[in-house]
Design a protein around this nucleic acid. Structure first.
Lengths: 156, 156
DNA sequence: AATAAGGCTTCCTATGATGGGAAGGTCAAG
DNA sequence: CTTGACCTTCCCATCATAGGAAGCCTTATT
């Protein structure tokens, strides 16, 4: 292994540096998320730095829960040579909205966890502020915690 | 503490207010991601505000690409009655790290898209200069990660 | 009382994303 | 030339999600 020949990587190297498994890279090619890779004479796939970048982008997007179709569209922003700027802007804008929503949800989860760590970890608190903060319901009623196996009724 | 519930919802209402389909709610119960819901005398499932909150949390987490197992652990932070604070903190901390990484990746993608909108869209020119400009990465030094570790992750 | 709407269960199917493994070809180093 | 690491294709398994059908029961409205 070690240093790569000039500008192209084997599928294994690409997998190692992008975090996308070789299996998935082939899969992405088959479902046409990415274009068929170049091949060596023997049929080995070759990936240049642009491919590597795209794979990293894909991995990040998958990691954030974007579907393949969404990623296809995101990649299309860069790849589609026939798309006019206005279209690009429109599509990108809607994806930016989606991304910002995800960011908001993440921060909401982070807040919830931090809140848990601040306010709920000291043993004798039967009452969880997160419930009140995040659920928009009008009640703080709690279910009876009798019966069931693991006391799952308590959220906090 | 005020007990006595009866701000309970049917599965359909729970689905409507949480964005998790009734089908999935039953599924989550079956795979024990959530504990069996209370039932009316007739067998209808009932969901109180704490349940609703959990379902929203689940939907958010799924939406962000967390696996069921991860969500199980996250929910466990609130559900575990025996929580020894140290364990809770440890687990929560590691999840906070994961969440902050996701947040960073999201902001990286947002940056990439905004960069695309700034730099690539002001005419009908169909090719993207930056896509070409990246003909050298992976090994060569990228512009210092101004900001944070994901700052360089641009396709375009 | 009748009806519509919705809930209950079980079962069957499908699709998408991922990964495991088999059977075999390629390549470089010993 | 052999070996071991890597590649190829192809098939199969799993998990999360979704849809649907059948058959029965409950609740709300008319």
């Amino acid at each position: 292994m070690s240093v790569v020949m000039k500008h192209s990587h084997t599928i294994g190297e690409a997998a190692a540096t992008t975090g996308v498994s070789a299996k998935m890279i082939r899969h992405y090619e088959k479902i046409r998320l990415i274009m068929p890779a170049e091949r060596t004479g023997a049929g080995y796939r070759l990936y240049d730095p642009a491919d590597i970048h795209k794979l990293r982008f894909i991995r990040r997007a998958r990691n954030l829960g974007f579907s393949i179709d969404e990623i296809k569209e995101l990649l299309g922003l860069w790849q589609d040579e026939t798309r006019a700027s206005k279209d690009v802007r429109h599509v990108a804008d809607s994806h930016l909205v989606a991304l910002r929503n995800k960011a908001a949800e993440i921060h909401s989860m982070i807040d919830a966890l931090e809140h848990l760590l601040e306010g709920c970890t000291n043993d004798d608190r039967p009452d969880c502020p997160i419930l009140k903060g995040l659920a928009s319901d009008t009640t703080s009623a709690r279910p009876k915690n009798v019966g069931h196996k693991f006391g799952y009724e308590r959220i906090c």
